[in-house]
Amino acid sequence: MLRRHISIAPIIGISLIIINVSAAVLAPFIAPHGEADMLGTMWASPTAEHWLGLDNLGRDILSRLLFGARTTISLALSITVLAFGIGVSAGFAAALKGGWVDTVLSRLVDVIMAIPGLIFSLVILSVFGSSVPVLTVTIAVLSSTGIFRLSRAVALDLAVMDYVEVARLRGERLGWIMRREVLPNALPPLLAEFGLRFCFAFLFIAALSFLGLGIQPPYADWGGMVRENAQAINFGSLAPLIPALAIAQLTIGVNLLVDWFLPNHSQTQGEGAS
């Protein structure tokens, strides 16, 4: 039996994720102020009223942090879900169909992966401008390449199994085989990949927002908050570090959980696409 002693790391990871998700869900109820309310002088130090101080426009940093969790996490989550939809279905189709479908998809993925993701997204954003749908689709497509490779590798192993062969001979359609026979057996490595891909999307949005090309103001989001408060650093204020720290703690939390999950549950070693 593979029963491992549960160490402290995954517990920290789970708690961080739960805290972040509840902050995101409950933001409108627990935030002391609105995300766009201007309440005082810029970069005021923390007080009993404003626990983390005020930002560049005199808005409450704690409230913006809570609302920012909502924006950033929900966007990263929807990007990851979309990326999995594209990546897994294309990967399974490539593995099960083989032939030219596999060749075309694999070469396309090779080319997309040959361009650094951030650079490619900048080219796209310069043409379409930055909006939530453009961000979602662009990052999802870039992220789906890694998922494609993993799910194709996993499905190639599963495609030669007897039960897949039986389903084929029974005359089941490709979509049915993918959903009912391959997907359940490919789930553990894909779950771990989901965590890693979430981090990828999350850090990607944070970086783009930091560059001023992601989520547009007045909506609070963690990368954008770092950018807005960057100037404060010259006065010795820690305002830009608070949202940056928020980004770091959530990715660390997810990574801790994935690190614990990965060796226990993955039968198929996918390539560690970063």
Partner: peptide, 28 residues
């Protein structure tokens, strides 16, 4: 694990705070 999780700008700003603002050794 830390450096994989932490965005580049976080590292950059920490360095600015410590070595430029507090210690004044390097330009920000």
């Amino acid at each position: 694990l830390l450096t994989i999780s932490v965005p580049e700008f976080f590292v950059g700003y920490v360095l600015i705070i410590v070595f430029s603002v507090k210690l004044g050794w390097f330009p920000s």
